[in-house]
Design a protein around this nucleic acid. Structure first.
Lengths: 193, 193
DNA sequence: GTCTATAATGTGATAGAC
DNA sequence: GTCTATCACATTATAGAC
């Protein structure tokens, strides 16, 4: 164990890489940039990681874990299914920055390398199933209509958030994101039994 | 005017750039790559365009114009509003490749340069308004519930398609895209008066 | 574990001949 | 209008001292 005042170099590298991947994407994030932000030298980075891709995998895992915790918190918050899903949709932040994870899969280098893509794929698989679970619960409790398709509806919710990011960035306007998530909430409301 | 058998170099450059931007994104598309694919030399490219960004603007405009024609065709096809929107949602192709336009706005270089971003922003503004128009028509004709919000619902439709691309790429599975668009169609169906 | 020096390759762009 | 040669710079990565 080590003290709290200074995180180890390896950790600082992962943290800096995660931030930069979010801000700039994979292609535009150079090792030199990561080194500068983490105050680590060239040698340190190549001591702890085999290269840019290896470090990026660790950073993407960290970002996905963070999003997972945030989603878990929102989906656990309310009492009814619609409250929980509403909390999740309202939780999303910083539409202009894009999604820490979803943003990356548009990058050709990330999709080409299965090591890089896998953490993103696993995150979305988990998220869809988690949301589908909340919806299935709502159906079981008689809150939602029995003809609700939890799997498909979960895809709609996740896709709306991801698409909202795209619209917000394309138009450089947060409102585009909010309009999409508000519409998703209305659509969910119409599933009420 | 010129013959049909050989397109002019300028046109081949724009075409090659549009393809490469779709396949690889902006950052990963180098001028050298565009020159090779269009069979144009270094000199030709810099004669017709001031640089990579200038050529990319022309290419993005071409891609956006193409998507606009495709969307227009689908949204003009059926007789009822729900038929037209269903045709639009079913029209989308090649989810693993991503959207020719939406894909680009995740790139930091594209969003940083207003010249590059504007064509994408304009395309989505147009698309949302066009879809909102179809929805408003459906409300006016008594096909859709009077409490339908055309603007918000249009955002939901466009976001679902863009988000569907993200999910499909993250999981490397077309089905993720289809599930999202099918759910969007179900949601629209519940707006029936 | 961390540093500096250096390599090999590729980038976007320019110059000037034809 | 198109070509080839060349530029200055950044990239990812390695070597070897400390």
């Amino acid at each position: 164990m080590y003290g709290e005042r200074m995180k180890p170099t390896k950790d600082r590298l992962v943290e800096a890489a995660a931030e930069l991947l979010w801000e700039r994407g994979y292609a535009a994030t150079s090792p030199a940039l990561i080194q500068r932000r983490s105050r680590a030298g060239q040698g340190s980075m190549y001591h702890h990681f085999s290269g840019k891709a290896d470090l990026a995998v660790a950073a993407i895992r960290r970002s996905a874990g963070r999003l997972r915790l945030a989603a878990e918190a929102a989906l656990d918050s309310g009492t009814t299914a619609l409250e929980r899903l509403g909390a999740y949709l309202d939780t999303e932040r910083n539409p202009l920055a894009g999604c820490r994870v979803g943003r990356l899969v548009q990058d050709p280098d990330v999709v080409a390398d299965d090591q890089l893509r896998a953490p993103a794929g696993e995150f979305f698989t988990w998220l869809r199933q988690r949301i589908a679970g909340v919806l299935a619960e709502g159906v079981r409790d008689g809150e939602l209509r029995p003809d609700t398709d939890p799997e498909a509806t979960a895809s709609l919710v996740v896709a709306t958030v991801q698409g909202g990011y795209v619209l917000a960035r394309a138009q450089q306007d947060q409102a585009a994101f909010r309009q999409a998530t508000e519409a998703a909430k209305s659509a969910l409301d119409r599933l009420r039994a």
